[in-house]
Computed example of a mutant assay.
Amino acid sequence: MGAPTFGWVRAAMSAMDEINDQAFARRLRVPVVMLAAGNDRIVSNDAIETFADRFRLGSQIVLRGSEHEILQERDPIREEFWAAFDAFVPGAKLKRSA
């Protein structure tokens, strides 16, 4: 990977503008669960919470003590992530175990 291009930065800024529109989350028609790292220093948990509050079909779960890369965390945090994932996605545990 290299440094971000101007095109990537422009697309990222445009996406952030769209997501920050108050009506964006309310227009989503698919269930969403956001798993946030409690000790994230890269992504704002306050921004995630604000966004999650706008959902009709969504929720936010904060994994306390976790850093940004949740799936590279200690086993207890990864287990908490997978438990939330399995509870959200029907049949996910069966497919992962097979």
Rank of each mutant, 00 (worst) to 15 (best):
A98Y: 15
N39H: 11
V9H: 06
V33E: 15
Q60F: 09
F55G: 02
L94G: 07
I42N: 13
E73A: 07
H68F: 00
A47K: 09
S97R: 14
T50R: 12
R27L: 11
R26Y: 14
S97I: 10
S66R: 01
A87N: 14
V62M: 06
A12G: 05
E18N: 09
N39L: 08
F24W: 13
S66T: 05
V89G: 02
G91E: 12
V9R: 11
L28D: 12
I61P: 00
L57G: 13
L28H: 07
A25Q: 12
T5V: 06
R96K: 05
K95H: 14
D75W: 03
D40I: 07
L57T: 09
G38C: 12
R96I: 01
D46S: 14
E18W: 05
R27A: 11
K95N: 14
K95Y: 15
K95S: 10
R54Q: 05
R29Y: 04
P31M: 09
A3S: 09
F81E: 02
R78N: 00
A3L: 05
R78A: 00
N20W: 06
V62Q: 03
E67N: 12
E67Y: 14
N20Q: 11
F88C: 05
F85G: 01
I42Q: 12
A84R: 02
V33G: 02
W8S: 05
P90F: 00
E69G: 00
G2Q: 04
A15K: 01
Q72E: 08
A83F: 10
A11T: 03
T5Q: 05
D86I: 03
